[in-house]
Design a protein around this nucleic acid. Sequence first.
DNA 1: GCCCAGGTGGGTA
DNA 2: TACCCACATGGG
Length: 231
Amino acid sequence: MRYYELMSAALGPMNWWPAKTPFEVIIGAILTQSTSWGNVELAIENLRAAQMLTPSAILKVRTSKLAALVRPSGYFRQKAKKLRAFAQFLKREYDGSLERMFQTPTLVLREKLLSVHGIGPETADSILLYAGNHPVFVVDAYTHRIFSRHGITGGRPEYEAVRARFEGELPRSPQLWNEFHALIVNTGKNWCRKSVARCTDCPLRPLLPANSPLLPLAAAPDSTPLPGSIA
DNA sequence: GCCCAGGTGGGTA
DNA sequence: TACCCACATGGG
């Protein structure tokens, strides 16, 4: 029994990231920082109604106006600055073209994204994977919570160590990593809250006492294909 | 009313 | 390096 298979069986296909365009993925990745997705949706709808879902529009509008639009997502003054910082970066480095940006080698682009104000490891990796289909595994609060409760990772959030472990132990497939992270987030939302009240019906419950491998190591390529993987 | 949510940056020791 | 804290709205 494996994590991916249990979550996938319980939840079905995730079809992530919920966004219409790669630029919307990036907007959402910034706005969802420490914020529930429902609030992010309200902010994105405000941006859509104001025709602000393009880099050039964000560069033209006043930051105070931008802040008012993203207000429902919380930290709205900070996030307005962050959205602008990314739009400025994109224009400066890639003439405003996401296509050009995503042609950059993964690790080079990752470092450049991390240099942008407001883009940390999780946001950078969400952008790389979900907007650019680059092979990086996104680690978030749910990943830490679920896998540390299962004794798979340490208690302390060490982003790079956890990321390296997942990337090393899972088959190198952006599609698989995309689906896996989506399953982790939804499993977290549904069952693995800070309070353990709902822990009992968690689909991962059968794995709880054991120290099971994450996924592949033992996931033979000639066994049943994984839902969401391209194999 | 209180807790929490798909983090990040800045400051201090 | 390792903590602290600010940032802020909306739903349970």
